[in-house]
């Protein structure tokens, strides 16, 4: 039987009376690449925050590797890597120093020079993070998410701001990591990305689940040609089709 890596049950969170996450339930299996899809403000980042224990749910529960992240922070994050949206870095820290600093947080860190190489960042080791382009910084935050050799990695809008080449590099690396059994939980705005990478997707609208399944299941359920059109269908934007 497959062990559930992430298990979300009836997760609900409101901010000042507005339900941002509304009765959300889904499971992510071990070794799976799972995407949470939705508009800006649909509740994707809040869902991630709730799963990671950065916010407390009003109702429901979220477990990572069978544990509640807020209660078992240390044990969970020894096995879980995270890339949060818009993470910033200390001013005047270099790429290499950021790697050393994040590696020092983990008992058995990954080999960061190899990770930098995989993401074509090796030549920038001595550069200040503040001088990197948006795409390079985004790639660095993926490197830092992987630096603890995690079993599960959360990537919140990982390729936003990347150019086509950089996006393909990230995809290539994530596919390699998936082959090695890494479980990947991601959010993205690019349906093409979800189609290429994901085993299963979950589409949410105003915090509620509107579709879930493998990419082909979701496309079939919508009777559309591809995931992007299926997404628009489930979002109720049929007039754009």
């Amino acid at each position: 039987m497959n062990e559930s890596s992430v298990s979300v049950r009836n997760l609900t969170k409101s901010f000042s009376g507005r339900r941002v996450v509304d009765g959300l339930s889904f499971d992510v299996q071990k070794g799976e690449v799972f995407a949470l899809l939705g508009h800006n403000g649909a509740g994707k980042s809040t869902t991630i925050d709730l799963i990671l224990g950065l916010k407390t749910p009003d109702e429901g529960s979220a477990k990572i590797l069978g544990m509640d992240a807020a209660k078992n922070r240390k044990r969970v994050f020894e096995r879980v890597g995270v890339q949060l949206q818009n993470t910033q870095y200390q001013s005047s820290i270099t790429v290499e120093e950021a790697c050393i600093e994040y590696a020092s947080l983990y008992p058995i860190p990954a080999d960061y020079p190899a990770l930098l190489e995989q993401f074509s960042l090796s030549s920038l080791r001595k550069s200040f993070v503040s001088k990197l382009s948006g795409g390079e910084r985004q790639k660095l935050s993926v490197v830092l998410a992987l630096i603890g050799s995690p079993e599960i990695v959360f990537l919140d809008e990982l390729t936003t701001g990347l150019d086509v080449v950089a996006r393909r590099e990230v995809w290539r690396t994530l596919k390699q990591l998936k082959k090695r059994g890494l479980t990947i939980f991601l959010t993205t705005h690019y349906m093409e990305e979800a189609e290429v990478l994901c085993d299963r997707v979950c589409i949410i609208k105003s915090g509620k689940k509107v579709a879930e399944g493998t990419v082909s299941e979701v496309i079939a359920a919508s009777e559309q040609k591809n995931l992007e059109e299926a997404y628009l269908f489930f979002m109720g934007e049929e007039e754009l089709l």
Partner: peptide, 21 residues
């Protein structure tokens, strides 16, 4: 205050080591 407002402490929270370090 900078570490907090830039979200660096938040990011450190998502690691096995406490931001206290």
């Amino acid at each position: 205050v900078e570490l907090r407002s830039q979200g660096i402490l938040r990011r450190m929270y998502c690691s096995p080591c406490s931001p206290a370090r």
